[in-house]
Design a protein around this nucleic acid. Structure first.
Lengths: 185, 185
DNA sequence: TGCATTACCGAACAGGTTGTTCGAGAGGAG
DNA sequence: CTCCTCTCGAACAACCTGTTCGGTAATGCA
C-alpha cells in the first residue's frame, strides 16, 4: 500500500498531476484552466478542489517528485560535481522537467527551483572555505543563473547537447572564476 | 507635438502604461486584471481595448522604452563592457525595470529580455573571434543566465550592491572562463 | 463476506474576468 | 468655429473560479 492512502486518492492525484504536465506542454502553464485539468484527468470538479487549492498546488506537488534537486554537498572532489548527475537525471524525466522549468512553465515554480539550487551552491562554496559575504551571494547568483539558463534552454530543445557537453560548458564558464575567488579566501 | 499623436492618445497610453507598472509592483503581473488597469488609469474599458490587445501588449510597449538594452557591440576594449553602464541605467529606472524583469514580472517579458541580451553577448563573442558552434551557444547561455540572475535579484532588492560591485562580480564569475575559451580559438 | 467509512460525481451557484458593441458626448486639430 | 477623432460607460455573452450538496460507488477492515 504505497503511501498508506486510499487507492482512489492515489489514482485521482496521479491523474491530475499527469494531466497538468500534459497540458502545460501543450498550451503553457498560464493558459491551462482548472476546467481543462479536470476534463483531461476525468475527475469531478469538487473532487479536484478536495485535493488541491488550485493549479499552482498541483505544480508544487509535482516539483517535490524531482528528488535529484537535493543531492549531497561535496566539500572535496571536483567543484560543482552535482552538475553532470543532474543533467543526466533530467534527461530521464525530460517531459516533467520541461513542464516545470521550461519556457512554458510558470514563474513561481521557476523561482522555487532557483531557490533550491541557490542553497545547494552556496553551501558548497561555504564548505570549500568561502566566507559569508555580499560578494559570495553575488557569485552564487551568477552560478545559479548560468546553470538554470542551460537547463531551461536544454529541456526546451533550443540547445542540442549531451549531459556531458552541458556539464563541460557549465564548468568552463563559471569554474575558473569561482576557483579564482576561492583561492583568494 | 511629440510622436505626432493626438494629445488624448498620448495621455491615455501613458496613463495605462504607468498604471500597469504600479500595479505589477503592488500585486505582481499575474494578479493584475484589465479591470484593475482601467480603473487605476481612469480610462474606459472600450478605450483600453482600442489601444492594446490586453495587458501583455502594454507590458511590451513598456519594454521598448528601455533603450539601454541595445548598446553598441565592442570588439576591442574590455570584455563585456556593456555591463557596468547597464547596471547604472537600471538604477535610474529601478521601478520600471523591477516591474518588467523582477520577481513579480511575467514569464514572457523575461524571455524577451533574455533574448535581447543573448544576441548582444553572442555578437560580442563572435566579434572577438569565437567561431559559431554549439559550445559557443552553451557559453552564451551561461553568461546571459548569470547576468539576468544578478539583475533580477538586484532590482528585487534581494541583493544590496552598487552597480560597480555587480559589474565586478559578473566579470569575476564569467570573465576568466570566457577568456579561456576565446584564447583557445 | 458484510458493513461502516470514505471518496467521488455532477449539477448548480454566485462572483469575477474578458473582449466586444454601440450611441452619445467631449476634446483636439486646423 | 467646425469637423473629425477619441473617449465614455453601460450592457452583453462567454468563460473561469471555488463552493455546496445529496446521491452513488469504491475501499478497507473485521
Amino acid at each position: 500500500m504505497p503511501g498508506n492512502l486510499d487507492r482512489r486518492v492515489r489514482r485521482t492525484r496521479q491523474a491530475i498531476q499527469r494531466a497538468l504536465v500534459e497540458l502545460i506542454l501543450e498550451k503553457g502553464y498560464e493558459a491551462v484552466t482548472v476546467t481543462d485539468l479536470i476534463d483531461r484527468a476525468d475527475v469531478g470538479r469538487s473532487t479536484f478542489y478536495a485535493h488541491f487549492d488550485g493549479k499552482q498546488a498541483v505544480l508544487f506537488s509535482n516539483l517535490s517528485e524531482i528528488a535529484f534537486l537535493h543531492p549531497p554537498i561535496s566539500a572535496d572532489g571536483p567543484l560543482f560535481a552535482f552538475s553532470l548527475a543532474m543533467f543526466e537525471h533530467v534527461l530521464e524525466q525530460r517531459d516533467l522537467v520541461r513542464a516545470l522549468l521550461g519556457r512554458r512553465s510558470g514563474r513561481v515554480v521557476m523561482a522555487h527551483g532557483e531557490q533550491l539550487l541557490q542553497d545547494l551552491i552556496r553551501d558548497e562554496l561555504l564548505a570549500r572555505g568561502a566566507g559569508r559575504s555580499t560578494s559570495l551571494e553575488l557569485v552564487v547568483t551568477c552560478v545559479v543563473g548560468a546553470f538554470m539558463a542551460l537547463l531551461s534552454r536544454w529541456v526546451d530543445e533550443e540547445l542540442t547537447a549531451t549531459p556531458a557537453e552541458l556539464d563541460a560548458a557549465f564548468h568552463a564558464a563559471v569554474g575558473p572564476g569561482v576557483r579564482a575567488m576561492l583561492a583568494q579566501a
